[in-house]
Amino acid sequence: MSNGNSVTIVGNVVKEPELRFTSQGVASATFSVAVNRRWQAPQSQEWEEATSFFDVTCWRELAENVSESLERGSRVLVTGRLEQRTWETPGGEKRSRVNIVADEVGLSLRWATGSVVKNERRSGGRDVSQESRESTTVGYNYEEDPF
């Protein structure tokens, strides 16, 4: 991201991903992440804690993968950009909200294990069929030693 507007957070999913589609069929998923911060107060030497909540929006394939993979409580890493949205209430109050538009979302393996399952690659918005993948490997014998 060359514009300088980038953020990375690590936290726990507190709101299950909600998958929606635009009228053009583009997938969008939203979920919330809680980020805990703990520090020791210099004067009292007692531990203090604060929690911040962030709303995250994902688009396209990332949105579909997030909605299938994440659940409440999952520890995640989110990298993206901050986006501020402003609006006016019917009563005339101005409101705003800062949201993270995700470029990448991954599971944190600090206190858990995970496995990766690759999705089929998409070409031009369509799934690449098994038939076309097989045609690219015709003539190769997988039983032969490659060396």
Rank of each mutant, 00 (worst) to 15 (best):
R81W: 11
T89P: 02
V98M: 04
V76S: 10
V101R: 03
W59C: 08
S52W: 04
N65G: 15
R60T: 09
E48C: 12
R60N: 10
K94C: 00
V66T: 14
L70W: 08
E49W: 00
W59R: 01
E46D: 08
V56H: 04
S96G: 03
F53T: 12
C58E: 04
R81V: 09
R97A: 01
R85V: 13
G91W: 11
V78T: 12
E46M: 09
T89A: 01
F53D: 11
G73M: 04
G73S: 02
S69Y: 14
L77M: 15
W47S: 03
Q84W: 07
W59E: 04
S74C: 07
G80N: 12
E49M: 00
E104K: 14
R97K: 05
E64G: 05
N65S: 15
W59I: 06
L77G: 15
A63K: 06
L62E: 07
L62I: 12
E61Q: 14
W47C: 01
F54A: 04
V101Y: 02
F54W: 12
R95A: 00
T51P: 03
D55C: 04
T86H: 03
N99E: 07
E83A: 15
R85L: 05
N65P: 13
E49A: 03
N65F: 15
T86W: 01
S69A: 15
D103I: 14
S96C: 07
N65T: 15
V66H: 08
A50T: 09
F53C: 11
R72I: 14
S96K: 06
E88M: 06
E64I: 02
S52A: 06
R85H: 13
G80T: 11
T79G: 10
E88L: 09
S52I: 00
G91H: 03
W87C: 07
A50K: 07
S52H: 06
R81E: 09
E49V: 02
A50L: 03
A50D: 03
R72S: 14
S69G: 08
D55S: 06
V98W: 02
R60K: 11
T79I: 10
N99I: 07
R97M: 01
G92V: 03
S74W: 09
L82C: 08
E68T: 06
V78L: 14
I100S: 02
W87Q: 10
R72M: 14
R60D: 10
G91F: 12
D103R: 12
R85Y: 10
E46Q: 13
R60H: 03
R75A: 14
G92S: 05
G73A: 04
L77A: 15
E88H: 07
W59Y: 09
R95N: 00
C58V: 06
R97Q: 00
F54M: 05
W47P: 01
E71W: 11
P90C: 05
D103A: 13
N99W: 01
T51N: 08
D55R: 08
V66K: 05
Q84T: 11
